[in-house]
């Protein structure tokens, strides 16, 4: 699917980089623990998280992710948004909870990454 499909599926709001909504993504990872995201190197395009700090963007950067989705209505601060803009990452926000968000995206065809 494309990043823009996630907007419809999660009824999400675009926070930044709406110029990159056509980016293709096949895999995702949902976690509030960045250590766990880093623990399994996979090809993952999307990070779903309820954690809000600059390390979310840095973690996604190290893992070559293209899109961060904040769940449970969480909103990043302006410095976090600027960091993501600079790293060519789309940020979205949904009011849905983590479980529901992951379930809906899985249902729509997004999968967990394949461990390398």
């Amino acid at each position: 699917m494309k990043v823009k499909d996630i907007i419809d599926i999660l009824n999400a709001e675009i926070i930044c980089r709406d110029d990159l909504l056509d980016t293709e993504v096949q895999t995702a990872c949902g976690s509030d623990m960045m250590s766990d995201v880093l623990a399994f190197v996979k090809e993952q395009g999307v990070l779903l998280t309820g954690l809000v700090n600059p390390q979310v963007v840095r973690t996604a950067e190290m893992m070559d992710m293209h899109c961060i989705v904040f769940v449970r209505g969480k909103r990043p601060s302006i410095d976090i948004i600027h960091l993501a803009e600079d790293r060519d990452m789309v940020m979205l926000a949904t009011k849905m909870e983590m479980f529901t968000s992951c379930g809906r995206l899985y249902d729509a065809g997004l999968r967990g990454g394949i461990e390398k």
């Binding site: 509030d32 623990m33 960045m34 250590s35 766990d36 880093l38 623990a39 190197v41 998280t49 954690l51 700090n53 390390q55 979310v56 973690t59």
Partner: peptide, 16 residues
């Protein structure tokens, strides 16, 4: 609370 401290740091470093 910042998303770290899962006890994966050093094992991860060794792994990669």
């Amino acid at each position: 609370a910042l998303g770290f401290g899962a006890g994966m740091g050093l094992p991860n470093i060794k792994k990669y």
